[in-house]
Every structure is written in C-alpha cells, then in structure tokens.
Design a protein around this nucleic acid. Structure first.
Length: 170
DNA sequence: TGCACGATCTCG
DNA sequence: GAGATCGTGCAT
C-alpha cells in the first residue's frame, strides 16, 4: 500500500470525493501507536461559487488554506465544540475541499476528529509529507451512493440540493 | 466592539 | 427538542 501523494489530491473535488471512499486513513499518535480506518462518507465543497463552501466568502485567513494546492488539510471548529476534517483538492488558487464525514466504525464528522485527535494544529498539514497523518491507496474497488449535503440549508435552492455527498455501499 | 450563527452531537 | 460553546464574518 502506497501513500497517496499531491498529484492524487490535485484533481477536481467532484472526482476526488468519491475516489476517497474506501481509502485508508492513518493517524500516528505521539506515543507511536497508530489508528487505521477506511473512509466511508465524504462531501464535496467546490469553489467560491458554491454557497455552501466557506470559500464563497472569498479569500480570508480562515479560507486561505483552501487556496493552496490540493493535498493539505483544512481543519476548522464548528458549533464551538467540534473540529471538522477536510482535504483540500484541486489546483492552487482553486478553493475546493472534501469533508470527511465518516469512517468504518466511526460515524459523524465531529466524532471522527475526536477519535483521531484532530485539532486546529492539523490545519495546513500536508498529507504527502506528514509524520502523523496520511492516506494509503489500498486499491479497494467499491460502489457508492450519492445524496444532498448535510447541514447547509442556508446555501439556497440550488447548492442545498446538489448531490455531492458520497457514501460507501457495504 | 458587538452580534448572530454554524459542514454537530448528546442528553432527556 | 434544546443546549453546549466559540471563531468567523459582517454590521455598527
């Protein structure tokens, strides 16, 4: 199994979000133990025109990381208590990201960051070179289903209903 | 300087 | 069904 590199992540978010399903996420902890999970649910957030994407506010200190070349993490706090884990995708200056919503045995984006001990210090971390978090290509072929994204009712009729949530079929 | 609100989850 | 809890963006 090889570590997924920058080139893998630097494709369009709508291509990458389903491709991430079934990939292995590895988290190495300070005590040198490690956890491995399969990614089972993702959501795509695509560019400044996507009203559900934080980059729709434009380039700000918060969204800056989404403008970096694909392959780094975008981590932010929601509801004052949960960290959300996103993988930045696409080319430089093209703000896109995939929200990791679920892993095998860990359901919910807020729960998985707690389990993996992900916090703000991971914002901007590059998956190709990080010592503590990376993804492996396990060549798992899998089918998936699509649905509208969760928790973005404010984004307006069109963006609210776009089927950009991808779930691994068991 | 203040305020409303959110890519969530838990408990009752 | 409501509360926890705080960074962010936008209004003042």
């Amino acid at each position: 199994m090889n570590r997924l590199d920058d080139a893998f992540f630097q494709r369009d978010v709508l291509d990458l979000a389903p491709l991430l399903l079934g990939k292995t996420i590895v988290r190495k902890f300070d005590d040198s133990s490690e956890s491995r999970f399969l990614i089972t649910e993702t959501e795509a957030y695509k560019g400044e025109e996507d009203l559900a994407c934080h980059a729709s506010k434009g380039r700000t200190p918060r969204t800056e990381v989404m403008y970096q070349p694909g392959g780094c993490l975008y981590v932010y706090l929601i509801y004052g208590m949960y960290w959300m884990l996103n993988i930045v995708t696409g080319e430089k200056d093209n703000p896109q990201a995939v929200l990791i919503r679920g892993l095998d045995a860990v359901y919910g984006p807020g729960r998985l960051t707690k389990k993996l001990q992900i916090d703000k210090s991971f914002n901007g971390e590059r998956l190709q070179t990080s010592e503590r978090i990376y993804l492996l290509n396990n060549d798992l072929k899998c089918d998936y289903s699509v649905a509208p994204r969760v928790g973005i009712d404010y984004a307006g009729e069109y963006w609210r209903d776009v089927p950009w949530r991808f779930t691994l079929k068991l």
